[in-house]
Each structure stands twice: as C-alpha cells, then as structure tokens.
C-alpha cells in the first residue's frame, strides 16, 4: 500500500498505476531467494510489436522486447 504522499510523485512522473505496480512487483521479485528469483524473473518476459494507425495506414511498428522493468 503506497503512502498517501507517494501517489502524486509517480503520477506526476507520467506513470500510470500499471507501470507503478509493475515496478513494485519487480522489486518484490528481486527480494526472492535464488532458485525462485531467477525463475520468476525469467518468466516475466515482455515481447510484442505495436503499430499506430494514422489515416487508415499503419505506421512502422515499434518492438517492445525484454524490458520487464519498463
């Protein structure tokens, strides 16, 4: 549970609650002991391609890959 003072800080930094909770989750994962730590960190891999569409045409897709703490 975030303290009431912390809320504006991450929101002011342009983060959504999802980003904020992901950073927290990653911190917790890093606190695990070794066999579980490596396992849980290797499980959470990010990979997808995102393309914005302007006037009915896709722009060049950007690839988001392997940035678990982003």
């Amino acid at each position: 549970m975030a303290s009431s003072g912390a809320v504006p800080f991450w929101r002011a930094a342009g983060m959504t609650y999802i980003t904020y909770s992901n950073i927290c989750a990653n911190l917790v994962r890093n606190c695990l002991k070794e066999p579980y730590k490596a396992e849980s960190l290797s499980r959470e891999k990010v990979h997808f391609a995102l393309a914005k569409w302007v006037d009915g045409k896709p722009e060049k897709p950007t690839l988001r890959s392997d940035t678990p703490d982003h």
């Binding site: 992901n22 891999k45 997808f48």
Partner: peptide, 20 residues
C-alpha cells in the same frame, strides 16, 4: 483502427507483458 499489436505469443504469456 487506432492501434494494432502483434507477436504477443513469442514467449509464454505473463502478467508483466500484458500489463505493459
């Protein structure tokens, strides 16, 4: 169409990926 997202299932699906 505003956005399209592909190549989701390269790694096994996990919460971090979907939340990003």
């Amino acid at each position: 169409i505003e956005l399209s997202l592909t190549e989701l299932q390269k790694n096994p699906l996990n919460y971090t990926q979907v939340s990003v």
